[in-house]
């Protein structure tokens, strides 16, 4: 799995449900970060030249490059806007989230 996926967490009900000491599975994500966004990146695939600058610089690693066309994991995008700001072709636009 390239990116850990959002996983439901069962809250411990017995003391033995806790790990022995502070240790847990690497890459375990019971929460998403989508709720942080006020703007969402929208990609214009015609303008995108697949240079991958956005992929390189996303602080959250949410840009996916494996299919020849960039995709964004909207569960974990925080809407910082680095991708749009850094895109040399202005192919990404930050659009206000509708609540």
């Amino acid at each position: 799995m390239n990116r850990p996926k959002h996983t439901e967490f069962t809250f411990p009900t017995h003391i033995d449900d806790y790990p022995t000491g502070p240790q847990y599975k690497a890459g375990y994500l019971p929460e998403t970060n989508a709720g942080w966004r006020t703007f969402r990146p929208v990609v214009d695939h015609d303008a995108c030249v697949y240079c991958l600058r956005c992929y390189l610089l996303c602080p959250d690693g949410t840009i996916i490059k494996d299919s020849g066309q960039i995709k964004i994991d909207m569960d974990y995008c925080k809407g910082c806007g680095v991708c749009a700001h850094e895109c040399p072709k202005d192919a990404i636009e930050m659009v206000k989230e509708q609540l």
Partner: peptide, 20 residues
């Protein structure tokens, strides 16, 4: 960027948006 692993090792963290 082209050849680096698609695997993410720091993912779903709670850093501020845009954290360098």
């Amino acid at each position: 960027a082209k050849n680096m692993t698609e695997k993410e090792f720091f993912y779903g963290h709670k850093a501020c948006a845009g954290c360098g």
